[in-house]
Design a protein around this nucleic acid. Structure first.
Lengths: 201, 201
DNA sequence: CGTCAATGTTAGCGCCGCTAACATTGGAAA
DNA sequence: TTTCCAATGTTAGCGGCGCTAACATTGACG
């Protein structure tokens, strides 16, 4: 199915367009893609892509969903070898920040896409949040975590991780040209700091 | 100078274009602006704007710089009535998050614009960072803040604030439709949490 | 074997960013 | 005051874009 080159019907156009767009966004950013260029790349007329994606926004939504699924996969992977819940949480923070450092354009696209947070992947994220909140309540019952609103604690943790990732993507002056390993160490250090508090009371 | 309407020369075109673009980005997002539409709005031919901005990127850079200056202004304002350094820091976090909630498209443009973090306003931000670090070291000398790397503490604080702002702009499921007052309370609660730590040790 | 839905094609509309060549004008220099 | 020129406007147009309509090809299925 991948080598059909002399037939009128391409046979695999939708996936080829999607993968090409995915690669192009990852390497050159979302502004680098155009429907016509994708069509040329696939060796197809400039109207053909519209048989598979109603408009450009829909195609970008699909790319964003693919990227979000990839991020999800990496987050799951990261917690595979973690026994307790705390190390799971920290591993996920690290994986999240690393993804942002390695694929800034995809990270950007994911969060700039309405349909991602609204759709299935938003629910995945919500499920993760509920897990985190359950963990926090557990910690509070055991007397390990102060009795603040668990929702607030979860939100603050998320915000810290998301903020680190965003500062990298947004090329914050202190964080531009951050390697993946440096990103890992930074995420570890920052989440540790959140746990112990910075003591500014 | 503002009412020249029947003359060949507009007389104030650069500023009019800039202000129109600023308003349009703020209300409808960066994708809503086009050079030709701006020209029409200003009652001028579609080539005229290029006498003042070499290309669209340069115009957007100028809008971003204006927006960043506005943000700077609000940050300065927010600390006016604060005596000690800690309340200054928290007031700035609140102002930062509020700006993001009230002007998401401008906030987005600021951070997506290379020239802003590279140029003058990046230096302003750096100066702010140095102030924060000085405050942290002071706190450490007084025994109020743990002996972690002051740079790291500063970075973590920034990341939390930036993360909250970004979650709002990115329409995080839990934070969409957040009012300015809710943003204020959230920022206060989260920075407080950072100070005390969430105790997940 | 015929037909039809899926999926390709060509042609073209209107908008865009941007440029070249020309027009107007206000203000500095003579 | 007159002259002239740099600044800043104009028109016309190129090529690329997103997208649509009308038509062409074909494989799968009755």
């Amino acid at each position: 199915m991948s080598g059909k080159q002399n037939s009128y019907h391409h046979g695999n156009l939708r996936e080829v367009l999607l993968e090409t767009a995915f690669r192009l966004v990852d390497s050159d950013g979302v502004e680098a893609i155009s429907m016509r260029a994708l069509a040329r790349e696939a060796g197809v007329s400039s109207a053909a892509p519209f048989r598979h994606f109603a408009d450009k926004r829909v195609l970008l939504d699909a790319v964003a969903e693919k990227a979000a699924a990839e991020l999800e996969r990496k987050l799951d992977e990261s917690t595979a070898a973690c026994s307790d819940a705390l190390t799971q949480f920290r591993a996920m923070s690290v994986a999240y920040v690393r993804f942002a450092a390695e694929h800034p354009a995809l990270f950007d696209l994911i969060h700039g896409t309405e349909s991602v947070s609204a759709g299935f992947l938003g629910e995945v994220k919500d499920e993760r949040r509920l897990n985190l909140i359950a963990l926090i309540i557990e910690g509070q019952n055991a007397g390990l975590i102060p009795e603040a609103d668990p929702e607030l604690i979860a939100l603050t943790s998320e915000a810290l991780t998301h903020g680190l990732a965003r500062m990298i993507v947004d090329r914050h002056p202190r964080l531009r040209t951050l390697s993946s390993e440096e990103a890992r160490q930074l995420a570890l250090a920052a989440t540790h700091l959140l746990q112990t508090g910075i003591g500014l009371t």
